[in-house]
Amino acid sequence: MNTARQLLKQKNFMFKLGLIICVAWILAAILAPVLVPYHPITHQDMAGRFQPPSTQHWFGTDSLGRDVFSRVLYGSRISITAGVITVLISFAVGILFGGISGYVGGVVDDIMMRFSEMVQSFPPLILAMVIAAALGPNISNSIFAMAIIWWPNYARLTRSIVISVKENDYVTASRILGASHLRILYREILPNSVGSMAVMATLDLGNAILMFSGLSFLGLGVQPPMAEWGAMVSDGVLTFNYWWISTFPGLAIFSVAIGANFIGDGLRDYLDPRMRGRA
């Protein structure tokens, strides 16, 4: 708790802005059933389809006359969850895999890196499609599929950071003092590596949401009537005269991604004592 309070005390405007955006979205996702003016799926008004934004329909209506605002709010539930879980799983797997690979080095590193390259060499969308198709198209399977193609990025980043960090004299000093490998990794190397990883993870959130949308678009993630940002963007692409259909869910993805990125930047600065206390 103390750490959290210190984090909030920072004179970092961007960090606070990011926090506000993300908290707002999380609240919106939780409270969506209470907030929406229309039901996102069952409220269809074929006579009032393709309406531009108005006081009645803040973000307009789509090709089936559904309220875009309501659908954006509901979409946040799936999109944000899918993005966050994918990034978290990849982050955890990547840090473990890359940490070991970079720290141990030698043959172990070679084998582990060739394995991650093998996974990376598949076209990502197609690999995800294969996994999702084999396991059955639903939300949790597509999250799992995305995590499988996503973790090598984190593993490779962690590895390269660990390799550069472990050359520092303080790591040697710790070895000379008799610290175990686990202790060196946990106390010396990881604290000096997580900063850049946190930034990459938060940057990736937007990408993960987009990729999940891609899967949904192909019918492998969220099934059509459900509201999901990526699927909504692609809906709008087919009827691009009606700009509001894809612009608002697009802005939603953008705002989550940038909010998360502000948080990541602030987090990195906080984790680095050298940057602490600066504006």
Binding site: T172, S174, L271, P273
Partner: peptide
């Protein structure tokens, strides 16, 4: 051992008191 580069021989994320208690913890 005493190192050549004083800026790289101390973990930047930790306070001096933590660095100096590390040998006893280990």
């Amino acid at each position: 051992m005493i190192f050549q580069d004083p800026s790289s021989c101390l973990n930047p994320r930790r306070k001096i008191s933590e660095i100096l208690s590390e040998p006893f913890v280990i």
